[in-house]
Structures are given as C-alpha cells and as structure tokens.
Design a protein around this nucleic acid. Structure first.
Length: 313
DNA sequence: GTCCAGGATCGGA
DNA sequence: TCCGATCATGGA
C-alpha cells in the first residue's frame, strides 16, 4: 500500500485511509464513507452513464448521477476532476466496484492505440472522450437487453425500473434492486405484460426459467472464450446476435465483440460503405480494424453517432 | 394516421 | 443462407 501526499484542498479525512493499489495512475482515497478518485483519468459521467450501456443510472445534477447497482444505491459526482462515489467503503470498492467501473483499465493507452486508425473514430473519441465500459451484473444485463429489442432507451429504462419495483427488494425507501432469476421465473406473463414488456414478456420468463432450471451461472461465462459464451447466450429465447454481444461487452468483459445495432449498420452502410463486408463478417472486419479495443470503439461510435454525428442534440 | 426504437423469430424462397 | 412480415408499446 502506497501512501500519497495530502493535497492542500482536501479536508475531513484520515491520512491512514489513503491507499493506492492501482499504481501511480489512479489515486484513490476513502473519506467520509465515500470513495474519492483524485483527478480521475478518462471518466466522463455523461458519456459513461448516458450512452445506452446501462439503464439504472439517472442524472440528478450537473456531473452527478445516482444509480442502483446490486443492492446498493450509489451516487457518483464529479467535481473539478475528482470523482466521488458513495456511500462506499474501501473494501467494497476494491472487491467489487473497481471492477464495476472498470477502473483498473488504462483507457488513455487504449485511446492512444485506437487513434489514427480511422477518421470517424478519431472524431468520436474526441467528442465523447472519457466513456468507460461498465462491468454490470449479467442477469440484469441480459434481461435489459432482451427488452431492448425494437425498443428505445427511455422506455427500456422505464420497464427495467418497473420490473424492479414489482419484483425486486426495496433496498432503500423508493429504491428497488433488480430481481434475481428465481423471482422472474415465477412471474406471471400477464403481470410482466402489464409492466410494458410487450411481446417480450415470454422471453423474460423463459430466460429466467432457463437460468434457474439449468442452474446456469452467467458469471462463469467470463471464463469462456467469446464464441463459446455467445453460444450459451444465444440459447436463450429473445437473444440474438446483437443482444448476446451487448451482454458480452457490458457485463462479461468481452471486448472482442462489435454489437451490430441499427446505428452500427448506419455507420457501416454510410460512413464505411466502401469497406462494408457481408454482415456476418463485420465483427471480424472491425476486430481487425480496431484491434483489441473493438467493443469499446463500437460503443464510442454508437454514442457519438446517436448524439453528435448528425447534429442531433 | 405513420414511423421509429441498442432486434428476434418465424415461414418461405 | 437469406428475405420479409410480424411482433407490443408509446412518443414524435
């Protein structure tokens, strides 16, 4: 454990709480029940939480978000370059949330590697810099992206929240955790339908039932090769290639995927028309094109294309 | 009224 | 293997 020098403008903390296990690049401190990342590198809250990879984070102020992660309600605030996460103690941070926010990854090095490969990605990286890929809970991510089919992001968020309110544990007054598979496996289709799931009601129940019935440990898919993990995910009803790849990228740490959503198709058929390969080859094309950061590059392009490319917003 | 949204599934060519 | 129709829902 390294001890950092105390900055002049921070007050109310015990110097004993300082720690820095991530090397000199990331300085983390526990103070007043929160975790503070000093001058956090590559962590833009809007581009991370509002880029469509997660559905349970709400913007509650300028550079301030509140989210439900597992059985916690967390606040994340950015102030003069410091990112504050709480309530959170050092142990939980190191055991879980460092991975959740992907804070062990050197995004600046990845950006350097990606820059210069492609003019559109260069623009996108410039415009939506600081986007991080979260490592979310697989079952919640799976159900959320089953809901994403032929749906829009605000409505997906509404439905995920309603499912949590109807079936999840109330962890704080008015805040509900996302339910586990055993709960949703027992849900009635008509009740799911009443929450606005539409025709996807049976996909949700079937997927939850399969997870429970076959004792599938989704977390264990992390340990499989991407293709093998994807094969398992494709076995669920309502899960096609794109949904599977979103789960792989946003919850299982698989960066060698390139989710083929409508925006990627627009980008490919428009911006990359001259290079557009037959569609099953897109992943291989972009893996080669963007290397190990392909999944991250996809999310950067997606977020940029949706919000900034055509002057929208 | 039509169109669209981080698509998947199905039947038929 | 590939193509088109269809699938709830709600906002624009």
């Amino acid at each position: 454990m390294k001890i950092c020098s105390r900055p002049a403008n921070w007050s109310d903390f015990d110097p004993q709480d300082w720690y820095n296990d991530l090397g000199d690049a990331v300085k983390v401190i526990q103070t007043q029940g929160r975790i503070l990342i000093h001058q956090a590198k590559h962590f833009d809250l809007d581009h991370t939480f509002s880029s469509g990879q997660c559905f349970r984070w709400e913007k509650v102020g300028e550079d301030q978000y509140r989210g439900i992660v597992g059985k916690r309600v967390l606040s994340v605030k950015k102030d003069r370059g410091d990112v504050e996460i709480g309530p959170l103690d050092q142990e939980s941070y190191r055991n879980f949330f460092e991975d959740y926010f992907d804070l062990g990854r050197d995004y600046e090095a990845i950006d350097r590697d990606l820059r210069g490969r492609d003019p559109y990605l260069d623009q996108a990286l410039e415009r939506v810099g600081g986007l991080r890929i979260l490592n979310q809970e697989p079952f919640e991510t799976l159900i959320s992206f089953i809901l994403s089919a032929n749906n829009n992001i605000p409505r997906i968020k509404q439905i995920v929240n309603r499912i949590s309110e109807a079936y999840g544990e109330e962890i704080l007054p008015g805040f509900y955790a996302f339910p586990g598979p055993e709960v949703l496996a027992g849900a009635r289709l008509e009740d799911l339908r009443a929450l606005g799931t539409g025709y996807r009601d049976r996909y949700i129940k079937a997927t939850a039932s399969r997870v429970v019935g076959q004792g599938i440990h989704l977390e264990a898919l992390r340990g499989l090769e991407t293709d093998k993990a994807k094969e398992v995910l494709l076995g669920f009803e309502g899960v096609g290639s794109k949904v599977a790849e979103c789960v792989l990228l946003f919850s299982l740490g698989k960066w060698d995927v390139f989710p083929e959503d409508t925006w990627v198709k627009k980008i490919v058929s428009g911006l990359y028309a001259d290079k557009a390969a037959p569609y099953p080859a897109i992943r291989f094309f972009f893996n080669d094109y963007f290397g190990e950061g392909a999944g991250y590059a996809q999310q950067v392009l997606f977020h940029w294309a949706r919000n900034y490319m055509m002057g929208v917003k």
